[in-house]
Design a binder for these strands. Sequence first.
DNA 1: TGCGAACCGTACCGTACGGTACTGATCGGG
DNA 2: CCCGATCAGTACCGTACGGTACGGTTCGCA
Lengths: 213, 213
Amino acid sequence: MTAAIREANAGEGLTERQGAVLEQALRLLVDGGEKALTTAGIARAANCSKESLYKWFGDRDGLISAMIGFQASKVRTQDVAARALDAESLERHLIVFAKDLLEVLAGDVSLALNRLAIGQASRDGSKLGHMLQERGRRQIGRRAAALLEAGRKAGLLTFDDADEAYGALYGLVVSDWHLKMLLGEEAGEMKKSFSRKAEQAVSAFLALYGTKR
Amino acid sequence: MTAAIREANAGEGLTERQGAVLEQALRLLVDGGEKALTTAGIARAANCSKESLYKWFGDRDGLISAMIGFQASKVRTQDVAARALDAESLERHLIVFAKDLLEVLAGDVSLALNRLAIGQASRDGSKLGHMLQERGRRQIGRRAAALLEAGRKAGLLTFDDADEAYGALYGLVVSDWHLKMLLGEEAGEMKKSFSRKAEQAVSAFLALYGTKR
DNA sequence: TGCGAACCGTACCGTACGGTACTGATCGGG
DNA sequence: CCCGATCAGTACCGTACGGTACGGTTCGCA
């Protein structure tokens, strides 16, 4: 935990103290939503002064941006070694990917940050939205793209447009669950069905884009 | 327009004046996001007094709830006549449904209300979220369920769990476009590809659940 | 014509937030 | 031992919002 934070700080050019402050800010956001994310509240929760907040992050928007960057740099998606790929291991990797995707999207920090960015999308020219897409989504997208490409190179998958294939995989896996969770549907019950959901989605995806059946 | 609003008012128990006020409030929300949705702003835009707003809707939350109900009752999804369904007409109906779904989700009022409900999901116990799901989503879901059931009865589709099949259709059609739009991605470019996207999604869906191929 | 209800416009109040300024304490280096 | 920098804690300011109260106007109705 602390090691991951220290690495995140290094990547973002933050001191350990600043990282701890951002951690508290994320906790406030997760617990109470955007309304709870006040400068006074953050200062109180993190035992720092408001003046320091403004010195370190400029203003409230800068602090929110730093929170997104900080959280993104904590999540590292390891690329799967793409060698020795057969039909069974491809399916296994796809299922793992699908479960990871569902669990990332259902994470409370991810949900809180997405809610925050969506709530500000109409006023800030979607700056936070782009940042969230670039720092969060794009990472896991690359991992999937690499996996799909490896499957294609191994003759296990067939598709012309990789983006289209990824879109189908994403849709089959996520469907409308993400939106339901963003709207506040209790995630507790859902999480137990993630495994089954992931297997079904991958099975359907392979039926569409696999070469085997 | 006015006829639709009058009908909406009747369904919601609103006077024409109140409907006009809600219309202005929706316009404010679409143009400026939640920040622009102030009681003073609504009163100014609708040429009414704040006192009337509180008299009619109770408080700000009541007004927002009324906005959701008002908008939902304006959109009426006509059920497709399910007779004389062959493979080609089923596909045509599915494509129309897919395009309608994408266009509804991309509508600026829908996006604004979803952003508003998502932004409040953490503080109000997802009351608005449930309302949006019940009044908006559920309607179009029923239309799809009826279509799928008709296809199954006609021997053109095969599935055990209708919800699962609908989830797959929804995911294939929408993928991550809805989230991208909620995050502020410009919808102008996207809309032109809705037709192609709908056809591809339906084609994939039929490959999964159709009996023909 | 007179009356009362509804309502617009505005002024008003309490509160809460973003951001700034000040004070005092801690601490490392010369 | 002192100096400068950093920072916590707090007080403070301007603003904007939700909600309420009040004067003036319109309009239906008896």
